[in-house]
Design a protein around this nucleic acid. Structure first.
Length: 491
RNA sequence: CGGGGUGUAGCGCAGUCUGGUUAGCGUAUCUGCUUUGGGAGCAGAGGGUCGGCGGUUCGAAUCCGCCCACCCCGACCA
């Protein structure tokens, strides 16, 4: 009984997910010490543990960006108003959320400076000077940066006023090459989301209504959170020549003609960390995929005063062995907390694997393991640590992905009439697959009636939108459907 | 930006309606001793501009006004 009430008081620290998903999410972010609110509205402080996760995420994305031939560079934070205004659709799309600097020191500025909401404008103005010949192409550059968007409603990681992201900006000689780049990076994002974050993601095409301001085509990856809402986790844009024409990015081609470059841009943000929390977390806190966990293994020595030295020495030995095998390990030998306290603490923080080491284990030459994701416990022979632990981490990583895939499949419903559509969105949520007549009018009407939006249009292996099967009707209008599309309520 | 709610110690809350000791409880923190295989026990200690500013009053956490922040629900977005 006493134990029960204690466990309850602990659980109370985070709101049950089933009771209030939104509060559960905030509780995890704060109790796992990922981030906190600050006195600057809409801006968060990313705490060391949260930042360590982000660094792992960033490094693995950075590697993929470099492996696909890009280099990092850094462009200014400020964008003169005249530059931002050059691409009409672009500025129209971003105007409501741009922060402006109007004064420098004590002097009012001649021209307002936008704090970048995205860097197309500033980067394009610079590319215009860099590109002269077809031999200068392609330009393959990525930037890791912070951007600012003046949002009305903010949520930790998912939508903050200032956020960290990466944005790739490339220039190409032909449209075909630009499209190839766009879909290549989309594929990188999908592979990354699934293999690194264990977050299954659909790759698809945005409707014109959801397209990036100024883009010719926007591709996206969409994930499904455990509350049944979708999260846009990355976008890749075929910018066509919209920006190059406005910013005069011209090159002389082999045929002696001056031509505008074809451009792409693509980005993923810290929002993905929010996605990880909402994909994998449970009633006890965060669950991190091993590939991004700051500590993949936490070792908890179990000792009494009499055997403390022996147990801790063995624990250090185990930690050193695992470190040498390339495992990120934390040995929690703090004396002021009981083992039980530590179990809960590290579960809250989402450490994928816990190893307990006490006198009984030492006697048997084993360590006792407990998986965070399944809570399955098992003894591991000491001699097999360097193979068994990395294998187990690998299994956890794969199981987490598989579990999320299964959930997504369960939460994907195909409907052929609007009544079922509404009922599904209202009660079950998840992805709802339905016919769409291809008009923005229908898309907006459905959004108005159900709060669900078209997350993406599925595409084939050539990245072309898949036409609806013969005879498919639009779920709202009953007109012939152009595509079967994925609807969901979203973040 | 509209509608609703909340703001008191790091966290969770009571007290506010009906103004009046030195603002309290749980937990966390510090010290000491005993403990340590799922949030240990006892004893002692520290910690508060009661979200902010202004007003009413002999006296304000409590009443009044303005502002701010956060949460939920709606319109815009990575």
């Amino acid at each position: 009984m006493a134990k029960d009430s204690k466990e309850q008081s602990f659980i109370k620290e985070i709101t049950p997910r089933s009771e209030d998903f939104s509060q559960w999410y905030i509780d995890i972010v704060r109790k796992a010490e990922l981030a906190d609110y600050t006195s600057m509205k809409g801006c968060m402080v990313i705490k060391p543990y949260g930042y360590a996760i982000w660094e792992n995420m960033r490094d693995q994305m950075d590697k993929r960006i470099k492996d696909t031939g890009h280099m990092n560079a850094y462009f200014p934070l400020f964008v003169p108003e005249s530059l931002l205004n050059k691409e009409a659709e672009h500025i129209a799309g971003f105007a409501p959320e741009v922060a402006w600097v109007t004064q420098g020191g004590n002097e009012k500025l001649e021209e307002r400076l936008a704090i970048r909401p995205t860097s197309e404008a500033i980067i394009c103005s610079i590319y215009a000077d860099w590109v002269h010949s077809w031999r200068d192409l392609p330009i393959l550059i990525n930037q890791w940066a912070n951007v600012v968007r003046w949002e009305k409603v903010t949520r930790l990681f998912l939508r903050t006023t200032e956020f960290q992201w990466q944005e790739g900006h490339t220039c190409h000689r032909t449209h075909e090459e630009a499209v190839e780049e766009t879909v290549k990076m989309l594929a990188v994002y999908k592979e990354y989301a699934e293999n690194v974050l264990a977050m299954p993601a659909h790759a698809g095409i945005k409707t014109s209504n959801e397209r990036f301001p100024g883009a010719q085509e926007t591709y996206c990856i969409e994930a499904l959170m455990s509350d049944g809402k979708a999260l846009q986790a990355g976008t890749s844009h075929d910018l066509g020549q919209h920006f190059s024409k406005m910013f005069n990015i011209l090159f002389e081609d082999q045929d002696n003609e001056r031509k505008y470059v074809w451009q792409t841009s693509w980005g993923t943000s810290m929002r993905m960390l929010g996605g990880v929390i909402m994909t994998h977390g449970d009633e006890n806190g965060l669950i991190l995929p091993p590939k991004i966990a700051p500590y993949q293994v936490v070792i908890i020595p179990i000792f009494k005063a009499a055997n403390k030295e022996e147990v801790c020495a063995k624990a250090q030995e185990v930690a050193a062995t695992l470190k040498a095998a390339g495992v990120r390990v934390f040995l929690d030998d703090r004396e002021q907390y009981s083992p039980g306290w530590k179990y809960n603490q590290w579960e809250m923080k989402g450490v994928p694997l816990r190893l307990e080491l006490g006198p009984k284990d030492i006697e048997k030459q084993t360590v006792f393991s407990a998986r965070r994701d399944t809570r399955v416990k098992a003894a591991i022979p000491m001699a097999q640590l360097t193979t068994a632990v990395p294998e187990l981490l690998n299994t956890i990583q794969n199981d987490m992905l598989q579990k999320a895939i299964n959930f997504r499949e369960e939460m994907t419903t195909k409907v052929d009439n609007f009544e079922d559509f509404q009922k599904t969105i209202e009660t079950k949520r998840g992805f709802v697959v339905a016919g769409w007549d291809g008009t923005t009018e229908t898309e907006l009407k459905i959004k108005e009636l159900t709060k669900a939006t078209i997350r993406f249009i599925p595409m084939d292996e050539n990245f072309k939108p898949i036409p609806a099967p013969e005879g498919t009707k639009c779920v709202l209008t009953g007109e012939p459907a152009k595509h079967l599309v994925y609807f969901a309520r979203s973040y």
